[in-house]
Design a protein around this nucleic acid. Structure first.
Lengths: 195, 195, 195, 195
DNA sequence: TATGAATGAGGCTTCATTCAT
DNA sequence: AATGAATGAAGCCTCATTCAT
């Protein structure tokens, strides 16, 4: 037990810092979120943050990587090659919406991060791996002549850009994203990629 | 000339401040863009900024309103009710892409602003008016049974979300948005909204 | 008429500036009273203040001299050598209280000014003249053996310090300075100077 | 010694800041005493001031409370109910004068503070307790028919207002407050409160 | 006389980061 | 591994004063 405590003790604080950072930044923004506040929220001292992360920037980058990977993986939950193209496509859509609605801070954080010139994002090998199923999906769809003959990234945007926009609308209270609407929107995007 | 000087003289500095703010924020972010740098870039003193704007926040809000309105109007250039639904839809698409590629700082600024919890955006009557043609378009399309029976905002997202994503891909160097690709993407989104 | 307008026009603005300064400083303090606010309150431009006064400091000094002289003169209204010592003493007391209650801003301003190291007060010949009756009173009282044999300034403080303290109590709402109380206090101070 | 160091270590900087603030403000005024100068004089960084005080205003308020309490307590040194009314009264007088002459900055600071609309003073329970002996003195004096039948605050002002005025005269060089003069003045004020 | 835009120094405060303990 | 006092650079903003008109 002392072993676990020791081991988890470490990651506990690290995790607490990351979670506090996520919550604070998603509702206050990068600036307006001082390290001292992150520390207080996480229940640790300001100094210890620099034991786990070399700088505030690295902390935020680390958080970005984690949240981004988690989001990608959530989108691909249940993804299986033996499902039809459409089943996989629609599955990603509903996974994404469900995840975003359950974890609103993560979406807000990602959008903020990705639209800020403040911090340059560096992606590593694990991202390439995590994203592979998307390319797999679109390449298979093109090979089979089911999808429009466009670069996979373009198909990706055609297929999923609207999803995050709609989630923002929902968060803003402009629309209510119930199952029916999600399915309708997902099917509309399916029409967009379909040849 | 003395006429123009007199007239423009009043707003010259104000305009210079707004333009400097746009350029700096789009490439450096909200923070990392001190008022002192804005002033220096605009060729004015730091103090005078507060003669034209009551705070940095108000300056940025004012800038947002101006850029947003300009973008909306650019999208609707040539918009005319006697054009077909598809012509109008595709026109908006190409107007948007063209404007975004010509004025990359404005798109970057808008995305950053709209995804930041830092500043709350307040829109006024002029926005409602400027956006009217979009609602006009989608409502007419639904009335005629051409578009899917979905809320106008949803149709808007289905129709245009991908556009800004693709522009970002272009700016990031991932794809090259030539005319052919823009048309293909625009037509794909047309498929998305089409019944 | 044009003559009067021209002449009064000048002093009108000067007076308006002085009055605005008095009101603002008495309720906001020296700092926290920018020249720009003084100008706005007086209904003039900021620049013109420097036509009438060479600096903010001089403006305040000028104001001090005027208010101080006015206060001294108000205390000595009705002062006449043919009145008894006690009549003159009590007259000063009630004049002071009456003036202070009617013109609360002036007392506040004087106290603030005289207790601030910010601005060094320079008094001129007119002050010496205006204050002469006080010395006259106390010297006569000493010569006649009616007052305690103390320096006139000391007799002055013994005789009148309590007056301003009581006015402040009244302004603060701690006591109500009605006629009866003023007379009682004045008589008590008369006891203090009386041999 | 290590003990004292440890104990004092905590409040050392806080105390240094308060002392520097007192000295600087008493000779320069509230404004004209920037926080940066306070910090430099105290031998600390500017930032740390905000670790101990939430703002410059709070710092000054805190200082006021401390100096005021110290002054009140100094006035009441040796105060004892078994002394006669007159002994107590005259003791307060000489305590006050002695304290003021020994600690001229404190008197200057108090006067400046109390006559400035800049900062609103809030007094707490400790003030009420510290001031109790004054009320005790005046109420007893009235009950015994020794003092004039006036509100305690009024008796207080009649009894002690002149003291601070005279100290200011001394500081200004107008009179020399030697023991003889202090006693004469104190006795004169005793006459003022005496029935 | 009069305006008010403009300047620029300086004030208060915040905050990422370090370091003695 | 942990604390939190401490630093000092930098940010936003104010304001006395000037000057072109």
């Amino acid at each position: 037990m002392s072993d676990r405590t020791a081991v988890e003790g470490v990651s506990d604080k690290r995790t607490a810092i990351l979670e506090a950072t996520l919550d604070l930044i998603s509702e206050r923004g990068f600036h307006n979120t001082p390290v001292s506040l992150i520390a207080r929220t996480a229940g640790v001292s300001a100094g210890i943050v620099y034991h786990y992360f070399s700088s505030k920037e690295e902390l935020i980058n680390e958080l970005y990587r984690g949240v981004k990977l988690e989001t990608i993986r959530a989108m691909l939950a249940d993804y299986a090659r033996d499902l039809s193209l459409q089943e996989r496509f629609l599955g990603i859509w509903s996974n994404y919406v469900q995840f975003s609605l359950n974890q609103p801070t993560k979406g807000l954080f990602l959008e903020q991060f990705e639209n800020s010139p403040y911090i340059k994002h560096v992606m590593g090998e694990d991202f390439v791996q995590a994203l592979a199923p998307f390319f797999d999906l679109f390449e298979q769809g093109m090979d089979e002549g089911v999808f429009k003959p466009l670069p996979p990234v373009v198909l990706f945007d055609l297929g999923f850009s609207a999803a995050s926009s709609l989630v923002k609308r929902h968060v803003a209270g402009v629309v209510v994203l119930d199952d029916e609407l999600v399915q309708a929107a997902a099917n509309a995007c399916w029409d967009a990629v379909l040849r």
